[in-house]
Design a protein around this nucleic acid. Structure first.
Lengths: 106, 106
DNA sequence: CTTCATAATATCGAATACCAATATCGGATA
DNA sequence: TATCCGATATTGGTATTCGATATTATGAAG
């Protein structure tokens, strides 16, 4: 298993938190979100990303809205109240884990 | 899907980084590692944890050593050089993602 | 109007990972 | 050699992941 795949596996959950995070500050849609991740050096397949959106909407963490921009249909997602609660909880737990990871470097 | 399962899913990759992290400072073994996570409020099944250890050893990120302690066999894991490289990379990327997640709270 | 191009979303199928539950291992004690 | 027990290993069913492919919806070109 290539190193880049390992790191992607490690960070996928984190990227899911980022979906909620971004959707809490602006409207996001699949193509652009993926491209922004790519710009920052993270890759995620559409075959992974879109089902994640669907599941998050199913679960009530995201709400979508179709819109046509320059002749193309986009599906914008925004966080819901329920999603915001999950985001807050995830943030908190991620911080705990993160702090421990960087503990000795203080 | 219960909220706790969601958060676990989000953080599982992070816990994998923690495996490398802990294995870089001391010898770890399954039962104890799981219990320590549990003490900190994270749950991971043995059916998840042991295969992760095996895969990480397969991939050359961990090296194991059987040892008998009080009449019971344990399998201690330590990080390898290759694993340390993955840990460093993962740490770096996790920090980038993490910082962005907490950006506006500065 | 009716193709055509294309941005974007959706889905497919094979491989893999996850988890709770269960099974197995192996040394110690007797 | 039987059994106990801490610890590891495996199983079976389900869900996720991924690259590849298909579909959708719209504006433009002719």
């Amino acid at each position: 298993m290539p190193k880049s795949d390992i790191v992607r596996d490690f960070l996928l959950g984190f990227i899911k938190i980022h979906i909620l995070h971004h959707a809490s500050t602006e409207r996001i849609y699949g193509k652009e979100f993926r491209e922004e991740l790519a710009r920052h050096g993270y890759s995620i397949s559409f075959g992974t990303l879109y089902p994640i959106f669907h599941r998050m909407e199913q679960s009530g963490f995201l709400a979508s809205q179709r819109e046509t921009v320059r002749g193309k249909v986009r599906k914008y997602y925004r966080i819901t109240r329920k999603g915001a609660a999950v985001l807050a909880e995830s943030r908190k737990k991620a911080k705990e884990l993160f702090d421990e990871l960087y503990e000795q470097e203080k």
